[in-house]
Amino acid sequence: MTLMQGSAVRSFVVARIASGLVSILFISFLVFLGTALLPGDAATAMLGQEATPELVESLRQALGLDQPLLIRYLDWLWDALHGDFGVSLSNGQPAMAMLLPRLENSLILAFSAAVIVLPLAISIGLFAAIKKGRPFDTMSGLVSALFLSMPSFMIGYVLIYVFAVEFRLFPAVSSVRASTSLTGWVWALTLPVLTLVLVAQSHVLKVTRAAVLGVMGSDYILMAETKGIPRIRIILLHALPNALSSIVSICMITMAHLIVDVVVIEAVFSYPGMGKLMVDAVAYRDIPVVQACGVLFSAIFVVLNMLADLLGVLVNPRQRLPRRGA
């Protein structure tokens, strides 16, 4: 990375936040535009088989579909910013009201996975880097690459086959509701969380290992060795802080991907999360719900990636402080 002046860091932060906002605006526009250009528009879609031209026209007016595109977008955006994505076409409930409890479930799933996978994969990556070329390194690399080649639903089904069908330890279907007890939650979440952990570990492990190896090969580590610093202190105090910026970034990026990976995992385990809601809405062409889910998923993803970049820069003193001080 290039070095930056103090003011350059500030403008980097501003630019990065701005570009994140642009991405979110873009997806919101795309989401909106797509529905507006829909061949048979929402009115036709809602009426389905019973569509007559008169009925469609009156519904179009009721939905405001006869206004110019830009006005409709700004209207829609204004409402969306206030949490109003319209009502579901399938059951007439506000899309946001349907979505919020589901979002909570998805976040519980994704963060449980993050809490397990980040420390685990980072330590394995660190250990693999220390034991470079040894059996532990080779084995962890092979196993991790194996999971990278598997579709995530396959990992889920293998776990179901083994732990739910053969050994009957955990349920194949993770149905939870607000009233479910804590142990019930743990019982239901174990397999989906384990699946997510296996899906996400490979990347974290690879990046951590590469970051630590990169640092361990540098001159200042050799310098520390010539000073006679004990090995464990070299790794923890000399190498790790310098790999920190990559590791912090990868943590945020992993969380971003976990949030999106839940879409498939929730389908495998019929878990009532936002991903399942979105997939069902896509199947029924329930556009307001698709829009709300799409924008929310993208916004979380974009913000976490933005944090990855920002934190990655801020934990590094070379980036944070001016070059030749006074």
């Binding site: 001159d219 200042y220 050799l222 310098m223 010539t226 004990p230 000399h238 590094n316």
Partner: peptide, 26 residues
């Protein structure tokens, strides 16, 4: 290893070619 490290800490010192790379940036 521990005895070697002890000797490196007390008896001998090393000055490297590129000081910019040999100091820990952190």
């Amino acid at each position: 290893q521990a005895a070697l490290e002890q000797i490196r800490r007390t008896r001998v010192a090393y000055v490297a070619q590129s000081a910019a790379a040999a100091f820990n940036p952190f």
